[in-house]
Structure formats: C-alpha cells, structure tokens
Amino acid sequence: MTESSNSGRVAVVTGASSGIGAATARGLAGAGFRVALLARRLDRIEALAADLGSGALAIRADVTDRDSLVAAAQRVQEEFGGADVLINNAGVMLLGPFSPKFHDDYRRMIEVNLLGAITTTEVFLDQLRDGGGDLVNISSVAGRTARPTNGVYAATKWGLNGWSESLRQELHPDVRVTLIEPGIVDTELPTHITHHATRQVVQEGYDAATVEPPDIAEVIVFALTRPRHLTINEILLRPSDQAG
C-alpha cells in the first residue's frame, strides 16, 4: 500500500501518551492514516495531536474502564466515521518478587495488559469489521519466556498471545490480526515498578537499550500497509545484543 491508499484509514492507538504508542501514532500519521490517540494522560495526547495536525484526535480513555472506551468509540465513529485499525498498546510492567505484598500490582497488570486489550477490542470490533480492518496486539518477549520476578507480567503476555491466535482464526478474513512481541525497548515502563530493588536492576537494562520506540513503530506500520491478501501474524523483535 502507498501513502495515498492509506489516506482516510483510521487507526486507534491505546497508550498513545508515550513510548511505542506515541511513536506508532507518529508513524501511522506519516503513512497517511488518521489517528485517534487514547490514553489517561490527556495533556500528553493533546500535545501529540496538535503536533500531528488535523488528522489526529486526542481522547481521554482508560482501558480498564469500559464506559470510557464506549464513549471513545462513539467519538471515533462521529468524527472519523469509525476505526479501521486498533493498536492495543496500553500496558504496565510491574515486576517484582511473587508476594502477597504486591497483590495490587498483579491485579493492575491483568486488568490493563490482558482485560484492557480484550475490552477495547470488544468495544471497537464492529467498527473494525465494517469494510475490513486490522487488529494489532502489542505483547512482549515475556509472552514466550518467563523468569523470576516477571511471573504475572509474563502470564498477561502469554494470555495475550493465546487470545490473539484464537482471534486470528476466528476473525479472518474480516479482520487481520497481528501480534508484536518486542524485547527491551527504551520506554518508561520500568519507572512504574513499585519494588525498588527490581526497578533498579530493570532500569539499568533499559538505560542501555539500543532499540527505540520508532524502531517498533516502523515495523507496525510495515505490517499494516501490506496488501489485504497478506497478513503478517506474528513478529518477534529483540535488540541484537539481547540474549533471551
């Protein structure tokens, strides 16, 4: 597909206030898409929308709040005529030892990473099916490998991977489903970790990250701009120096 063939297509990006979400919105806008930016931090997505121009729309929404997603979908329908693409990017990575002390962290990851993606997709599904759409789920290398301190985070990503494969089979050919599994990317994810010792160790790895959000965004845009007869179902990406 060329940029002109993407003109008029509408992409909804969750977690668009930073990192991979913001970079993907920029990449899609550059490829000719109109973009609806969904996030809780309205000031950030409003600034991004202003930077992207008239083809961008900022909508405050929380993927754990179905009512806010329904309102967002209605606004996308009213202002853009509906969504052609949904990028389920919103996520949190609250790593740490498995302990009752971190019960709230576990629940938060499940609600955002897994249930948030499921609910957002359910809300936007009819729009995606109208004329043929694309669903992109942002998972992680942790959806394939589990280590000490990432158990619940990995569980949410393994769950996202399994659900994506089921949807790939169920929604074809109305909606193409693509799963993106990045390794370490230079984002703010470690800053939200509540267990201090784990945060320090993880942050050191992220400080040395050689992959930036625009690198992942470029791959997402590539997958979305393939001809409709081709679906890129799964992409695993790591920095060249990341072993596992």
Rank of each mutant, 00 (worst) to 15 (best):
E218I: 02
Q74D: 12
G151I: 05
T178E: 01
R199C: 06
Y153D: 03
S7N: 05
G132P: 06
V141C: 03
F80Y: 14
E212N: 04
E170P: 12
L95Q: 04
M109I: 10
W163N: 14
P214Q: 12
G116P: 09
R34F: 03
G91Y: 11
M109W: 12
L160C: 06
I87N: 08
H192Y: 02
E78V: 12
V123R: 04
S68P: 15
S166R: 01
S68L: 13
R129T: 01
D126E: 11
A72E: 01
P148Q: 04
G32F: 02
T119M: 05
L230W: 13
A72V: 06
A58D: 11
R26A: 09
I180H: 06
R9M: 14
Y153Q: 06
V123T: 07
L28I: 14
V13Q: 05
A146T: 14
W158I: 01
G30E: 10
F124Y: 15
A90H: 09
V152D: 05
T210E: 11
V221R: 14
T191W: 03
F80M: 13
A142M: 03
D207Q: 09
G82T: 07
A197C: 03
R41Q: 06
H103S: 12
I180Q: 04
L115Q: 10
L224F: 11
I59L: 14
D65T: 05
L86M: 10
D51E: 15
R26T: 15
A29E: 02
L28D: 01
A23D: 04
L189V: 13
A142F: 10
E3Y: 02
D174M: 01
F98K: 01
D215N: 10
N150I: 04
V112A: 06
L38R: 13
L189I: 13
D134R: 12
K101T: 06
I180S: 02
G244T: 15
D62N: 09
V70W: 08
